[in-house]
Design a protein around this nucleic acid. Structure first.
Length: 336
DNA sequence: AACATTAGCAACCGCGAGGAA
DNA sequence: CTTCCTCGCGGTTGCTAATGT
């Protein structure tokens, strides 16, 4: 027995939306909102459409601030970086690109960017194969004293942020957050916020979790996911994007995180951080920036392997990391 | 000019998660 | 506790336009 259809397929219109339907839907939502019920919406709006179809049309096309057209180099870079880090989590990637929807990004990736990366990038942009390690070996910890080089999150996209540890991030200041906003957190754990007004990215906030090895980070950016919810990966049940406006990513163990974060930084090996340290320079404020301005933020080899592994196995587990979605915490934990 | 192929993108589908009843 | 309903996500499909032969 198959799944029950979400609507009566015989009585709903399918296919491309007409301008009349668009304006009906837009008008209705602008006037009444979605009412939290997409299924009932088409009938109320006088549309012979499936609720899911209405939702998709609104989120991908009609809702305000949708950006269409060419992707910028910066957007390419962000997409590639995130794809190398988290795979085809389009909604998460979309959350970092205001105005873009996950569908848009997915299409762009599948039709253009992937091809561009696989075939057109000059050799100078291709990096050495990424660091890999077996489970029996500990990866070099970027948090250790010998590798005190960090990506300058201040000048780069938020997804490259390592967990703030002690004095590593002077531009992070501890902030107070009403504990009632969060579940599963303890009041003794600090919250951090980027206080550097010169940074280009949205203010970042860090949230502790009950597990001290976990770090949650998010940015207060406009909502860009196709679902408009910005809550694809959220910390706790009480964090509703409508209230918080955050997108959150929860990474697991710091070693893994920094290894992934440092993917693009040269030849990472098991014996230390020498290789991947060389392109990074510490700024006076304690932050670190990449010295090769032309360098991309992703490792082409990583992406190529992702692409090929995805096409063969249809599985985003690429050998560098696996995603363990721990449902009890309602967060996504990225683990080695 | 006609047909075939490819690219781009909007829309659909089915599944899993979560909340309400 | 179970069932049902809805939402959101990622993968896939299918239509149209552009390009190639």
């Amino acid at each position: 027995m198959g799944r029950a259809p979400c609507c009566d397929k015989a009585n709903v219109k399918r296919g491309p939306w007409s301008p009349e339907e668009d304006s009906k839907l837009k008008e209705y939502i602008e006037k009444h909102g979605t009412g939290g019920n997409w299924i009932a919406l088409p009938q109320k709006a006088g549309l012979r459409r499936c609720g899911k179809s209405c939702r998709l049309r609104w989120l991908n096309y009609l809702r305000p601030n949708i950006k269409h057209g060419e992707f910028s180099d910066e957007e390419d870079r962000i997409i590639c970086s995130l794809y190398a880090n988290i795979g085809s989590r389009w909604s998460i990637i979309a959350a970092q690109l205001p105005g873009r929807t996950d569908n848009d990004i997915k299409n762009y990736w599948n039709t253009k960017l992937k091809r561009k990366l696989m075939g057109l990038l000059p050799a100078s942009h291709q990096r050495i194969a990424p660091y890999q390690h077996s489970s029996s070996q500990n990866p070099p910890s970027p948090f250790s004293s010998q590798t005190s080089i960090y990506r300058d999150y201040c000048n780069n996209s938020p997804y490259y942020i390592p967990a703030p540890t002690s004095s590593s991030f002077p531009c992070l200041q501890q902030i107070s957050v009403p504990s009632s906003n969060y579940t599963n957190t303890t009041s003794s754990l600090p919250f951090y916020q980027n206080q550097d007004p010169t940074v280009g990215v949205s203010p970042m906030q860090y949230y502790p979790t009950t597990d001290s090895s976990m770090l949650v980070f998010g940015s207060e950016t406009s909502c860009s996911s196709s679902d408009g919810s910005c809550s694809q990966v959220s910390l706790g049940r009480e964090i509703k994007q409508e209230e918080m406006g955050f997108q959150n990513l929860m990474f697991g163990d710091q070693h893994m995180q920094m290894n992934k974060l440092m993917l693009s930084q040269g030849n990472m090996n098991h014996d230390g951080g020498e290789e991947y340290v060389k392109h990074w320079t510490e700024k006076p404020n304690g932050c670190v920036f990449q010295t090769q301005e032309t360098a991309l933020d992703y490792d082409l080899e990583v992406i190529k392997q992702l692409i090929s592994s995805n096409s063969s196995s249809n599985n985003s587990n690429n050998g560098y990391f696996s995603i363990d979605e721990n449902k009890t915490e309602k967060g996504v934990y990225y683990n080695y």
